[in-house]
Nucleic acid binder design. Structure first.
Length: 113
DNA sequence: AGAGTGACATATT
DNA sequence: CAATATGCCACTC
């Protein structure tokens, strides 16, 4: 075979980086999109985070995607799937995250690495 | 190859 | 609180 060069030249995509960071979010804590983006090395790519997560959103995914919320302490899934939002909330509550007035108190539950 | 899109963030009104 | 504006840029078509 003629293997002149390594096909695996693709550098880590933002999705991969996001994937790694989200996987680090501890149980019972949440992170904002901007936070995840910054930790992944993409300071102002909050939107990209959402986009990336959208791609990996899978039932068998090991990613705690439900621990990623927006900067207002609210869930942002409703635009895609209103039901998924309820599921996300349910999952978070099971982890001990408290919703007050329909939102999470980030001061209390935001992941602080 | 260029235009459109987006699980957002921040600031302002 | 809600609406609006702007930034940001990888990804999709």
């Amino acid at each position: 075979m003629n293997i002149t060069k390594e096909p695996n030249t693709r550098q880590p995509t933002i999705q991969q980086d996001i994937f790694q960071v989200v996987a680090l979010i501890p149980y019972g804590k949440v992170a904002t999109y901007g936070q995840v983006a910054a930790l992944a090395g993409y300071p102002r790519h909050a939107r990209l985070v959402g986009y990336a997560l959208n791609r990996i959103l899978a039932p068998d995914s090991d990613l705690p995607w439900h621990r990623v919320i927006n900067a207002q302490g609210r869930l942002s899934l409703h635009k895609l799937d209103i039901h998924a939002e309820e599921l996300q909330r349910f999952k978070l509550e099971q982890e001990g995250v408290v919703f007050a007035e329909g939102r999470v108190n980030l001061k209390t539950f935001q992941w602080q690495p």
